[in-house]
Design a binder for these strands. Structure first.
Length: 603
RNA sequence: GGUCCGGUAGCUCAGUUGGAUAGAGCAUCAGCCUUCUAAGCUGAGGGUCAUUGGUUCGAAUCCAAUCCGGAUCACCA
């Protein structure tokens, strides 16, 4: 279906037409037509900026504004009701019936915006954890961002595959295995009563403790530190284990599978709690050998070159980058090698038009190089690669460091948020009329909503600072604020016996009096939703939905304060306001749903 | 050192291809619950948009230089 044209784009269109009609002999650059929302201190709804045209048309802004305004009102009598020219700005007033038309067309639709299918297959890879430690706060930003981005792209008509590439092999995995063998005494998640990913993570920490001790002992014995770091027994053991793993040693593989299975069970619990899912899992243990063939082909093509010791490189200096290693001298692959292979694998698996990687900005260079190499190799997957780069989450004291124990654990954070929401709900005395089970759901809805919103509300590109001491607020620019507005609406609708997908009887509504300012502001914002949704996809920025939803909730609260819905001045007003709040609730739901945030009907 | 990213109110952040007197939230202060949920609303104070120069009718936004902070440039992953 063809989406209805937004008001701003309609205004742009008629303005372009008007300019061409008024100045048929002048070739005007119509892309300069800018339509903004009129500032509250002026009368009008939308504003056309006149400055871009005054020079070319040789008119004073005021004269041009008058001309354009007269023409627009005259040629679109049902659309504009009037205009005002203020120092170079043409402020246009829109006919209330346009707003009414939007409301009646939108009310009751749960799927507010039906975007035309793009026919594009898009993969979003996110989360992509290591199996040697539990998820931490930084991972949460990745997970929420990836999930939200996938949903936003889907809502914009793309066919989306959510993928997770699990880093389940390598020296870091062997470290927790070695430490577990040495120090766990056979402990399992069951016997230790610890979530599997946490148990394995504990032994990863343990490895570092033992390692430090061993290095210290060697140094005390007169060895140089750099040498000691290589000679420490536990490090040698880990490296030996990696060799055994790669050779397929049965005992090693069994332990590896056993410990990984603990981690997966733990992750599953966390993912489920977070409300995120994946369509396709990739495991590095299956993909780490990929890419060598691609490198071979690159050598044949002459895109890559071999050094004396047999290592394979690509020269990117012409692109302002460095030389990059793709195969070691002994023929084994490096990180980049497998990433080349995985990129091609993904492409072949799904015939992707676009492949999005949600990865922190510390890997900007890596991703730039990855794409560039694939392009130089002429791989068809290359151009579709997009790095959705996001800033790291830092503590006031700086980056989280697992070795210094400053990492904020994801599971702890979730639990903390849920108990915070419980505390606040009880404090506000809002638990009446709920069963125990309902309260449990409510606390999760509020707690997780707050957490997700907190991490999604900032532009992904920017790094963010999280202060655990202050925890996360449930007032102001938060999911709670939006949830509360939604609950208020649902409460009214319950009392009025109107449902969110009901649209009975609204068609025949005729306006008898002007839409009031507080009403107008809300309708105006609601009408902009579909363009916000598009922008969120185009800019790969779900935070736009946070800002927008908060703004709508704010406008609703002011509106709610100024006007009674149930006891409206007359039946027309009541109908109008019911439509407005139904669409408000559906808009908030739609937007928050895409971010994985649920809105309660009571709170 | 090369490349890239960032610097907006005390704090955390918005600020659409350049547009009107730079906006929110938190915190501070002052008001608002016999009326649909006060997790709310209304108002006040708070700014050299890092600095300097340039581009023009107009710059937080574009360009250049400088200062500060961060990331990255491994036969690590």
């Amino acid at each position: 279906m063809i989406p209805a044209m937004t008001l701003t784009s309609r205004i742009k269109e008629v303005t372009k037409q008007a300019l061409q009609t008024l100045y048929p002999d002048i070739d005007i650059n119509l892309s300069l037509v800018a339509v903004n929302q009129t500032k509250p201190e002026f009368t009008g709804d939308y504003t056309v900026v006149l400055f871009p045209f005054v020079k070319q048309l040789r008119q004073k802004p005021d004269v041009l504004g008058k001309q354009l305004g007269d023409h627009l009102v005259a040629s679109n009598p049902g659309f504009f009701t009037g205009f005002e020219v203020v120092s170079g700005f043409l402020n246009l007033s829109i006919n209330d019936n346009e707003w009414l038309g939007f409301l009646t067309a939108t009310v009751g639709k749960e799927n507010l915006v039906e975007k035309t299918a793009t026919g594009k297959k898009v993969m979003v890879e996110y989360s992509s954890p290591n199996t040697n430690k539990p998820l931490h706060f930084g991972h949460l930003r990745n997970i929420f961002l990836g999930y939200a981005m996938a949903e936003v792209l889907e809502a914009n008509g793309n066919d989306v595959v959510k993928a997770n590439l699990i880093n389940d092999r390598g020296i870091h995995i062997c470290k927790s295995m070695i430490a577990w063998q040495r120090a766990a005494g056979g402990a399992t998640p069951e016997t230790a009563n610890v979530k599997g990913d946490h148990l394995v993570g504990d032994y990863y920490v343990k490895f570092n403790d033992i390692y430090k001790e061993e290095v210290a002992a060697l140094v005390a014995g007169g060895m140089e530190e750099a040498v000691a770091e290589k000679e420490a027994q536990i490090m040698k053991d880990a490296q030996e284990m990696l060799v055994k793993w790669e050779a397929g040693d049965q005992e090693t593989r069994e332990l590896w599978e056993r410990m990984n299975s603990w981690v997966y069970k733990g992750f599953e619990v966390s993912y489920k709690k977070l409300g995120v899912d994946f369509d396709k899992m990739y495991y590095e243990s299956n993909t780490y050998l990929l890419g060598k063939e691609i490198v071979e082909r690159g050598l044949e093509k002459g895109v890559l070159f071999k050094k004396e010791n047999g290592s394979v490189w690509i020269d990117l200096t012409a692109d302002g980058l460095d030389e990059k290693l793709l195969l070691r001298g002994d023929g084994t692959s490096v990180y980049m090698t497998q990433d080349l292979g995985t990129a091609v694998l993904k492409y072949n698996d799904f015939k992707l038009d676009q492949s999005i990687y949600v990865i922190a900005d510390e890997q900007n260079y890596h991703m730039q190089v990855l794409k560039l190499i694939l392009q130089k190799l002429g791989e068809p997957c290359a151009d579709g690669i997009f790095h959705l780069s996001y800033g790291m989450v830092e503590l006031p004291s700086g980056r989280m460091k697992s070795r210094e124990g400053t990492v904020v654990d994801a599971d702890d954070m979730i639990d903390e948020m849920i108990s915070l929401s419980k505390e606040q709900t009880e404090q506000a005395g809002k638990t009446e009329g709920f069963t125990e089970d309902e309260l449990k759901v409510l606390y999760e809805t509020i707690g997780l909503g707050a957490l997700k919103f907190y991490l999604l509300r900032v532009d992904p590109k920017k790094k963010m600072i999280f202060n655990p001491k202050e925890s996360i607020d449930l007032h102001g620019f938060t999911a709670t604020f939006i949830q509360y507005a939604h609950a208020r609406i649902c409460s009214i609708l319950r009392k009025e016996g109107v449902s969110l997908n009901g649209n009975e009887g609204f068609d025949s509504l005729k306006l008898k009096e002007a839409i009031a300012p507080a009403e107008k502001k809300l309708v105006l914002a609601l009408e902009q939703y579909s363009s916000i949704l598009e922008a969120a996809a185009e800019e790969y920025n779900p935070s736009l939905l946070c800002n927008y939803s908060f703004h709508v909730a704010q406008l609703f609260n002011s509106f709610y304060d100024a006007h009674s819905i149930s006891k409206a001045e007359n039946e027309e007003k009541k109908q109008l306001r019911l439509m407005m709040i139904i669409i408000t609730a559906n808009t908030l739901r739609h937007a928050m749903n895409l971010l994985g945030i649920r809105l309660p009907e009571k709170m």
